[in-house]
Design a protein around this nucleic acid. Structure first.
Lengths: 160, 160
DNA sequence: ACCCCCTTGTTATATTATAACGCCTGCGCT
DNA sequence: AGCGCAGGCGTTATAATATAACAAGGGGGT
């Protein structure tokens, strides 16, 4: 099980993600530029999903460009290369919790705090896809709900 | 297996979805107003996902209001009550293929023609969620790819 | 008659995302 | 050195998706 909602050594988390990204870029001839690296660091600060415009605001405050394409391109690079993932249910982005190892990610997504736990599960739907002659290119698996911290703190107002 | 990409009697498809919606509304005290009913009919015309603004354009052409909330509210009603589903990966909406029976839907979503096949699979992630104390409220399971018709017709340009 | 809830409509604005172009740099080539 | 090219970053402008907030009307209950 990947962490996300549990307490853990987050510094190690950040360090290993960054060094995995560096290694992957070096190995594949990709440029981990200051902008891209900083974007990844921003995502890595927490396990919460950030909107592209949240990331953009951070980048702008640090002297990078201020227009949407700056953030979208950096995020696109990270997502395309597996260093980050897009959470469709939130239209937001989160750092990859398993950098380096190729994987079909799936997520527990808290609607209270937007934190995300990344899990590795066997791909569902494969037999159905095959029966239909459908070529799967990407799986989106997101469980939306409330993490235990949010339920306890009343964030997201439990259903009556 | 639900249809979606295969040939089938679509007229029966539409009729059964509409009568299931009528029955569910009658049973639950919901109002299937002309706007809501027409919105469902528009979604039912094909198994392709439609954007809210596509639906809005159709509604407006038929004399309904022309502003986004008109479409978003009708779609919200249909989605809330299980008569339609939102496809997160497309930011679009599709009629439910299994109206009446409660289900956690999952989808094969073609990026060539936007058609959607709705499948019923066992919820993944349940054990992981439990281990984290995470309360799942909704599962999003979408396999994105190309249907056989699109692959054969070259739509979506096969990977080189 | 009156009230209340629900539905539909509006105006206005927020949020998310991409197209298209220019500049600069680093790199390979001659 | 000089040239050309590709990639990255920045811009302007606009597209696409979504919601907040308020007004008007209808229909049922008392």
């Amino acid at each position: 099980m990947a962490h996300g909602f549990d307490r853990h050594d987050h510094r190690a988390c950040v360090a290993s993600a960054l060094s995995a990204a560096e290694a992957a870029c070096a190995g594949r001839g990709l440029a981990l530029t200051p902008l891209r690296r900083r974007t990844l660091e921003i995502l890595l600060e927490s396990h919460a999903a950030l909107g592209a415009y949240d990331v953009l605001a951070r980048l702008e405050a640090e002297g990078f460009g201020s227009k949407p394409p700056v953030a979208y391109r950096a995020l696109g690079f990270l997502v395309d290369n597996g260093f980050a993932h897009r959470i469709e249910g939130l239209s937001a982005y989160v750092a990859c919790a398993r950098p380096g190892s190729p994987h079909e990610p799936s997520f527990l997504v808290c609607r209270g705090c937007r934190r995300v736990a990344e899990e590795a599960i066997a791909a569902p739907l494969a037999p159905e896809a095959e029966a239909e002659g459908f070529a799967v290119e990407r799986m989106v698996v997101e469980a939306q709900g409330l993490c235990s911290a949010c339920r306890e703190s009343g964030r997201g107002a439990a259903p009556c």
